[in-house]
């Protein structure tokens, strides 16, 4: 990471971000945003109130706009870093500060996965905008192709012949064969799989905001595939409770024959690692 900080492009972007954050605070403190309205009695005051609403709305729009700008800047920096990471990986060059994952301890990988789930951007639409595909529970369009480096749930055949949904990273997609090449995220397996489209489920690219877009979340009792905590495998589960706040996780009940009722006790799984389950029959 130190190496990346030294990258002039990233340094420039970080400085731009700094400026944007300062502008954001200027915008936020420019006007008193606390508005108290009472029921207006006369038409004159109603018109006046309408004017106040319009002004307040313009203020809010300006604030939203600068905040979006700053968030876009962060996304830009992150995607640039991701590009660099993939390039480094492809070249097979690992620096001292980015050691090969072969040697990465499992606990470190789990922390990374959690971090990535937490910083999945929150989708905040403008008024009247509805959440896009890959936001929360909204599936990708049928012709969607996951990009290189995207995380996906991939259905692979294990050595013992059992089928399993694993967390994987897209390496490439071939339009001629309609097949993905994916890497198992848990490089202990060191396996590269070639899988058809049907065996790939892209993970959400935005968190859905439960406060504004609850319809973009899986609802209670819905059957999903969820990443079992401290593993890199997806298992069938029922939604126990959807998140209430942007940073909350789903609470899910995993199918588990070792429990009397066939389900595990409620476990938390981040929005990033919960995807729709197509097959409805129980195994």
């Amino acid at each position: 990471e130190k190496k990346m900080s030294a990258d002039p492009k990233i340094v420039e972007l970080l400085s731009e971000l700094h400026q944007l954050i300062k502008q954001t605070q200027e915008e936020r403190s420019r006007k008193n945003k606390s508005i108290i309205f009472s029921v207006p009695a006369s038409p004159y005051y109603r018109t006046k109130l309408r004017g106040l609403y319009t002004t307040a709305k313009a203020d809010a729009e300006a604030e939203c706009s600068i905040l979006r700008h700053a968030l876009d800047k962060i996304a830009e920096i992150k995607s640039l870093m991701e590009e660099r990471r993939i390039a480094a990986k492809m070249a097979g060059v690992y620096s001292d500060s980015d050691p090969p994952r072969k040697t990465m301890r499992r606990g470190v990988l789990m922390t990374l996965l959690q971090q990535s789930a937490m910083t999945l951007p929150l989708w905040i639409g403008k008024p009247g905008e509805s959440p896009p595909p890959l936001c929360g529970a909204i599936p990708a369009s049928s012709d969607y192709v996951a990009k290189q480096g995207d995380k996906v749930a991939a259905r692979v055949k294990a050595v013992d012949g059992d089928e399993q949904w694993i967390l994987a990273e897209v390496v490439s997609y071939s339009h001629s064969t309609n097949k993905y090449e994916v890497d198992d995220i848990d490089e202990e397996g060191k396996e590269r799989h070639t899988l058809s489209r049907r065996r790939i489920i892209p993970l959400p690219q935005w968190k859905a905001n439960p406060e504004t877009d609850p319809e973009a979340l899986f609802s209670k009792e819905q059957l999903v595939l969820a990443l079992y905590p401290q593993t890199t495998c997806f298992y069938r589960a029922l939604i126990h409770a959807p998140p209430h706040r942007p940073q909350d996780d789903y609470s899910v009940l995993f199918e588990d024959t070792s429990y009397a009722d066939g389900y595990s006790p409620p476990l938390n799984v981040a929005q990033r690692y919960v995807v729709a389950c197509k097959e409805n029959k129980k195994k």
Partner: peptide
Amino acid sequence: GIGIEELDTLQLELETLLSSASRRLR
């Protein structure tokens, strides 16, 4: 300036601010 390691936290905080502002807007 800002360090790369701060981006994640900053993102979450800016999202909180944006969420609040966009609710006000709505």
